[in-house]
Design a protein around this nucleic acid. Structure first.
Lengths: 154, 154
DNA sequence: TGTTTGATTGAGATAAATTTCTAATAAGGA
DNA sequence: TCCTTATTAGAAATTTATCTCAATCAAACA
């Protein structure tokens, strides 16, 4: 949460400190997320497809394992938007830290920032003695377009 | 989000307004959530089991459909904690509205309240012209006990 | 640098969660 | 009361994620 950017060396050091290892797979996956344009996020399937495009033949199980690991380390954040599966993005610190406004009908997602939320989150974690990994406000709502249509949505 | 409590009549009116119907299944499921002690939340399986206990033989697919519907209406909120499946609870307005602090290793969940978050959420939704259904801050963190153990967790 | 240890990987099997399909039923408007 | 069509049950199918296990290879150390 508080790190700015992970170099492969940073990642290696942090993994090794816990008895884990830096593998080419982990390094590539981290790089893909770091190169992702702001506001983009990937599902496990998305990431796997993107890896294949780059001729990086990393198995789907490794993709899932790595996403989970990087999220546990606080390097990625796991997003629960309305798509029915998890998405991931780099967990950037203030002032890039942001939240999501999601239309539950069409899944349109808008980012927004709020320093007060980050403050609330940090304070809560601290109060209970937790080590903060990520805090995200997710607003479920219906966008103007979908309010007009009476269809039940997807 | 802004309603206090749904009577069967309220529910019927709101459903009918959209061309939908009030069925005994929907009414019973809503009642179960309304009777649930504060802080409790149910997965689809939990709810199905609880219905069987009450000799209410509602199929699992109807359970899933109804949960989705009630969440879309803003009557239930869908919680994405760390258990690997969705949980649901009544979406209560201020001052009962609350948020969750979750340990990503042991899944322990703690509730907390914050009026400022609800304010941020309402303001954001309004700004973009969205109709607010729910806003929830989820804090992912590692609890004191799990910080002590170096095991990778579940 | 070579050796050792055990973390990690790939591939497929498996599990868990959720959705879809279809015929039968029943809610609500006319 | 009748008619239309949303809804249901139950099963099958799909989607999402995890597990198994032999082979591999990263890191520590001699």
């Amino acid at each position: 949460m508080m790190e700015t950017l992970y170099s492969p060396q940073n990642l290696k050091a942090e993994l090794n400190a816990k008895g884990w290892r830096l593998t080419p797979q982990r390094e590539i996956i981290l790089k893909i997320f770091q190169d992702l344009p702001q506001g983009n996020h990937l599902s496990a399937e998305d990431l796997h497809a993107q890896l294949l495009d780059l001729d990086q033949d990393i198995s789907l199980s490794t993709v899932y394992r790595t996403l989970k690991l990087l999220a546990r380390m606080g390097i990625l954040r796991q997003l629960e938007l309305a798509e029915g599966h998890k998405h991931y993005e780099i967990n950037q610190p203030y002032p890039h830290h942001h939240h999501h406004l999601v239309c539950v009908k069409c899944n349109k997602t808008t980012e927004f920032k709020s320093t007060s939320i980050l403050n609330v989150g940090s304070k809560q974690a601290q109060e209970y003695g937790y080590k903060l990994l990520d805090c995200q406000l997710t607003i479920h709502a219906i966008c103007p377009e979908c309010q007009r249509s009476l269809l039940p949505g997807r």
